[in-house]
Amino acid sequence: MALLEIENLVVEFQTSTGMFRAVDGVSLEVHEREVLAIVGESGSGKSVSMLAVMGLLPWTAKVTADTMTFNGRDLLTMPGAERRKIIGKDIAMIFQEPVASLNPCFTVGFQIEETLRIHLGLGRRQRRARAIELLTAVGIPDPAERLSSFPHQMSGGQCQRVMIAMAIACNPKLLIADEPTTALDVTIQKQILDLLVNLQAEHGMGMIMITHNMGVVAETADRVVVQYKGRKMEEADVLTLFENPRSNYTKALLAALPDNATGDRLPTIADYFKDGSEIAGAAVS
């Protein structure tokens, strides 16, 4: 049985000009011990669909789906209190901007221990011990000292490590990483990706990696979902996707990588849809 199963997810936002459909009938599933990458450019609905899973969208959003189950439990019909017990404990998320998503008013120790208190109900001493253990696991030097640091006293890479520590604090079954390395340098990016992949293998978590960087996909994923304008363009295992992409959009994305440049010019998405054919019509599943 799949860990997370989504079928025909639709997310619409109420705007002054009517409903805007950000996610349009996306289906996907994640199994235990599997890394699924969701690739797409900004506005492709990749973050919104995962925020819908987390239940973190504002009230203006309308979320519908045929199925949305986690571990066999329906997330859509579940009462709020029940759902909040799962979110942050069994499903955890790492957000895009590490510096902006930590609370600047509290020490990182407080923020990590908060999760432990609410979800696991640990006592003060146990919480502190576990927080030190977590910071050690994500590779922060002097963890005991660092617990009393504020986010602004740490670098971007370290803040991202703290975010990861918070996310894995309750040993989640599913970890959603939303562009975890976009704001970071390549050398730090490598360290963070290695850390995530190691943690995932160690704890046997399912992981969803949201990214727009094909290199990150190639380095981490088992299976890939390509999204464009709220629709799923293609789903394939990582090797097939890079060797034999089927949808035109994926082909265009791969060709736009400067690594693959053959001539003087980089092909752009427009080159692949010169005849003006509807991209969505070219989707394959």
Binding site: V186, Q189, G215, A218, E219, L239, L254
Partner: peptide
């Protein structure tokens, strides 16, 4: 070494 590679050979090696 830190730059992610997006070619099938390095994916195969990683898998």
């Amino acid at each position: 070494a830190a730059t992610p590679r997006a070619d099938p050979n390095s994916i195969r090696a990683r898998l």
